Structures are given as C-alpha cells and as structure tokens.
Computed example of a mutant assay.
Amino acid sequence: MEFKDNIPIYLQIKQYLYREIAVGKLQAGEKIPSVRNLALQLTVNVNTVQRALQQMNDEGILYTKRGEGNFVTEDTALLAQTKQNLINNELDKFVQSMNALGVTNDQLSSILANYLK
C-alpha cells in the first residue's frame, strides 16, 4: 500500500480496512489480521495500526474479543451505512473534480448517462 504524504497514515489504514470490509474481503464477524501482521503487511509502525483499529472499535465497525483479536461487526446496518459513506465520499471527489473542469451538475448527469450506456 502506498501512503499519501498529506493524510495521516492511521486514517489511510482505516480507509483501507473500510474498503476491505465494503468489498467483502473482510466479512461480518470475521477476525481481522493481528496488529503485528497488519503492521508488517502495510510496512508501518504497530502503534499506527493500533490507533486505526482503536478508532474503528470506537466507531463500532470492529470489536475486540479479549485474547482473540479484533473482529468485524455483525451489525449489517452499520456495515451498509459504512459502505454508503465510502460511496458518497468517492462521488463527492468525482463531482468536485468534474466541477473544477467546468462541468455543471446538469451536464454531468447527461455525461454519466451516456457513459453508462
């Protein structure tokens, strides 16, 4: 994983894990890799991974079983909302980029409709 310099690494790790959950690579109730394994896999400090996981625990996306590790929540409504938030963030970026190119929202609607045909 390549990290961007302008965004804290722990936030990028959270985004990575959110995407893994959203696309189904990590299922509801599934154990996620250990903090050490994630740190090795992503080539980051263990404390950075721990910070990301702690925030995800605080948000309810993950939960911890003492002595067993971190697991993806089984709250399907929360998982669906998390996926929708990711989609909305990507759409926001896309629309802003198109607006910066001078494309209005009305034009964007017809451009997308034509593109998707």
Rank of each mutant, 00 (worst) to 15 (best):
T82E: 06
L42H: 04
L53W: 03
I87M: 11
V72I: 05
L116I: 10
F94W: 13
V49Y: 03
L42R: 07
V46G: 06
K65I: 03
Y115E: 13
I21V: 14
L38T: 02
N88P: 10
N6A: 08
Y16T: 05
A39L: 00
L79A: 05
T104G: 00
I111V: 15
K83N: 09
G102S: 00
I111Y: 05
L62M: 10
D106S: 08
Y115W: 07
K4M: 15
E2D: 15
M98C: 08
V49K: 02
L26S: 02
G24Y: 06
Q50A: 04
L40Y: 04
T64E: 04
N105V: 00
Q54H: 14
A113S: 13
N45V: 04
L78P: 02
K83Q: 08
E74G: 01
T104N: 00
L101D: 03
G60T: 03
R66W: 03
S110F: 13
N70M: 01
L40A: 05
L17N: 05
L53M: 13
L26P: 01
Q50M: 10
P33Q: 02
N70A: 02
T48G: 10
K65P: 01
L112W: 10
Q41E: 07
N88H: 11
V35K: 14
V44M: 14
L112Q: 12
Y115P: 11
Q54W: 07
Y18R: 14
L112N: 15
N99L: 06
G60A: 04
G60W: 03
A77S: 04
F94S: 10
L53D: 04
R19V: 06
G102R: 01
G24W: 06
G24M: 03
D5E: 15
I13K: 09
S34V: 00
I61S: 12
K25C: 08
D58H: 12
P8T: 04
P8L: 11
N47G: 06
D75N: 07
N88Y: 13
E30R: 02
R51A: 09
Q107L: 00
E68K: 05
K65V: 02
K93C: 09
E68F: 04
K93Q: 09
L78W: 09
Q15P: 06
K93I: 05
T48S: 09
S110H: 08
Q27F: 12
Y115H: 15
I32N: 01
F94D: 07
R51S: 12
N105Y: 01
L26T: 00
L11E: 12
Q107T: 00
I7F: 11
L42M: 10
E20D: 12
L40V: 04
V44I: 15
Q27G: 05
R36H: 12
N37R: 12
L78V: 02
K4T: 06
V23E: 05
E59G: 05
V95P: 05
L79P: 08
K117Y: 10
I61F: 14
I21K: 07
I32Y: 00
S97Q: 09
M98V: 01
G67D: 02
E30Y: 01
R66C: 02
Q84T: 10
L42C: 15
R19H: 07
V95F: 09
A22G: 13
M1I: 07
L53A: 07
T76A: 03
N6Q: 05
E68H: 03
I13F: 06
F71I: 02
S110N: 08
A100V: 02
S97L: 08
V35T: 14
